[in-house]
Design a protein around this nucleic acid. Structure first.
Lengths: 232, 232
DNA sequence: CGACGAATTGAGTTCACTCAACTGGGGTGG
DNA sequence: CCACCCCAGTTGAGTGAACTCAATTCGTCG
């Protein structure tokens, strides 16, 4: 690992409250790598041999059953992913692939587990990463079971708008078919859901989206921090 | 806390790899309590002031939005719940209520967090609890997005059958309307799904269930360890 | 310019929901 | 001890949401 990579890695939240020697020990066997779009980082069902930390870029977590596939989570900000499989030393429950060119820190699973045993600060950080992941999927599950397709789309639009500074106009951060899988709709149904939202002031042209009447949209979406707050 | 309660508490997985003084310190402010059916243990949206550990009994985790309510998870074996809110010092994402009279260990959230900072073994155990919880909801989410209602029911029947020793006959562990919410169906739809499964050898009389042709059922259900294995 | 994949649009179908009525078992009180 | 009530569960009927298959348009890239 190059010196400047080392400096970059040490800044990430995993190491914020652990002892310097733990971080150094872990980073000795670790590396940072840049991956282009479409790269498959791991496959569901494999034994967990690496902990991944997304430094920048976008990662999609997918799962499949029979010949169906869906999206479990999309990671757009710096955080660890597939934490639980590493902690438990079990099989990955999800595959992950790069949606937008990403810079990834990779830590060998075995040394992660020993570092946890040795350093309470690091183990705590891992518990926090696992908890963040838990709260994300729990939110997904709540949305999926409690909201209709239109409601999920409306709330996604509002969340995305907040993420980009409430300009009420933004570009799709990824393809519409990914969004469809993420919010649990067939691509055709998403397309129709967008048309339906026209009467709430939502305009779509290719990848560009405008929210004409945020209040009307919020009234439909009924956003709730317990389901929609990204930083919860 | 009574001496025999103390002994019982010390046995639970949270303390299996932590220092004795950490366990003792935590248990000083903790208590074990027996709760009857229908007891509400906490409410979604409150600040997390206790970590709960289910020693025995059944707990249902529910969430609501607007006037709708659903079940996120059902806890039937000894494990911690609402771990993530405690670790992150945030609001509970779920309410919990007792489905079958339960014996619960309650640990003050603040002391849990300080114990994590102080004891790597305990922090690791907490990370593992959070990871177990993550993998459970991830499995739920996968099932919900990838399977139809009938498929979810068929797989639930197979899981439950395994849980009780593959006798191909068991009693419903909780009410059918709870099962309906758990697998994401309206009660009426669950009732019809059971009728549909009659042609796969499933018989239902009140709370009693028989699986007449496990192979036929498995062929429909297509169980997969990455979605159905309780101990994953 | 052509080829490919993403996205949209159309049409038909299936799955799951809602509302409503009815059934049956368990518990309570007269 | 029985009548009644209440609630879980079932059954019926109609509706709506979301899926599938197919055809077309659009945009991008070679």
């Amino acid at each position: 690992m190059r010196p400047q990579d080392l400096e970059e890695a040490k800044l990430c939240s995993l190491f914020s409250k652990c002892r310097p020697e733990t971080a150094m020990g872990l980073l000795r066997g670790a590396f940072i790598q840049n991956f282009p779009t479409h790269t498959q980082l791991n496959r569901e069902g494999e034994v967990a041999d690496f902990l991944f930390f997304n430094l920048s870029g976008t990662i999609e977590l997918t799962a499949h059953w029979r010949n169906r596939e869906t999206t479990i989570d999309v990671i757009e900000r710096p955080r660890a992913f597939i934490v639980a499989a590493v902690v438990m030393d079990r099989l990955y429950l999800q595959s992950s692939r790069v949606l937008k060119a990403a810079r990834i820190l990779m830590l060998p699973a075995g040394s992660v587990r020993s570092a946890m045993q040795a350093d309470a600060g690091f183990a705590t950080a891992m518990a926090e990463e696992a908890s963040v992941a838990y709260r994300h999927v729990a939110q997904e599950l709540k949305g999926l079971k409690l909201r209709s397709g239109i409601e999920r789309l409306a709330n996604w639009l509002i969340s995305q708008d907040i993420l980009v500074g409430s300009a009420h106009a933004f570009n799709m951060p990824y393809e519409k078919k990914v969004l469809a899988a993420r919010i649990g709709l067939a691509p055709e149904v998403l397309s129709r859901a967008f048309s339906t939202l026209a009467k709430y002031g939502v305009r779509v042209e290719g990848a560009k989206v405008w929210i004409g009447d945020i209040d009307a949209l919020r009234k439909l979406a009924f956003p709730d921090p317990l389901l929609d707050d990204e930083t919860i």
